[in-house]
Design a protein around this nucleic acid. Sequence first.
DNA 1: GTACAGGCAGTAT
DNA 2: ATACTGCCTGTA
Length: 314
Amino acid sequence: MPYNFFAENVFNPEITINSGQVFLWEKLDHTWYGTYGNHILKISQLPFEQFYSDTGNRDNVIAIRKYHFESFPEMHNWQNWVFRLDDDIPEIFSCLSSDPLLAKTMSRGYGLRIMRQEPCQCMVSFVCSSNTNIMMIRKMLRNLSKKFGRRLSVDGRDFFTFPSIKTLHEAEISELRSCGVGYRAKAIKAVAKSIVNHDLDISSLSNDSYYEAKNALLRIYGIGNKIADCILLFSLDKLEAFPIDVWIARALERHYKSVIETDFNNITLRPDSKLTPFQYVRISEIMREYFGRYSGYAQQYLYYYIREAEGLKW
DNA sequence: GTACAGGCAGTAT
DNA sequence: ATACTGCCTGTA
């Protein structure tokens, strides 16, 4: 099944699932299924309901798509948590729209959300993301779930929850590698170990500052700047994080060169869009200052924009 | 066969 | 601080 649900509207048009951040969602027969740690989430589309506008003008018919949310086991009102419905999108829009490119992109992709992921799943997911592509990441995570997760039957179909950290910690490197994760197996174990041993207190990280939490993550083998920023943004509520992958680096090179390459900053972007660790930290700082406390949303819109603009294969 | 894909760690300079 | 290297695995 082709993987093409990038930026598909889930609640037309208020909310969008973005495959760039959530790897274990799939759509089957107009229904979305997703993995949130130990839970399987389900979104079903209901038939369109038609309304006449309040003017009573019969030509002015509005079709509204409604959705039904379920979870296994039951998690009350999970959609509010997972889709961050408390984020004030109009406020975020007004904060970011002083930048012309973002104003344009946000208008077009209005509704793109940052989904809140289960932290342990998020850590493992992005550890798997290094030096590979989205298709491969999805495959790795599906294999891990199938081998180490819990089987759950939903709508007569088998789903697998995400493996617990304890299970991953106890797994042999060779077993992890059998899931196709390659050399990342060592890093997966390192993540699991740091949580099991309480070297990393995952539950406190969202209360810590961006820098404190990031430094804690960076101590773990296999987690560098980019992966740490993804974990912070997608599971630890650090909306000020600005992960820079090669795509974002390309977007910056095309559209934000003047913001970055100033005499004061003394930075020169390389043509191949690769950053040294020092450059990463510096440029990330510059952009976080430029976009402000919702830099993470800016990053998501830029990612959305550049992948669409540069031609992409999913 | 080779290049490449949403990085990272290790080493040398 | 930067440059260079190797790394699993599947696809083009």
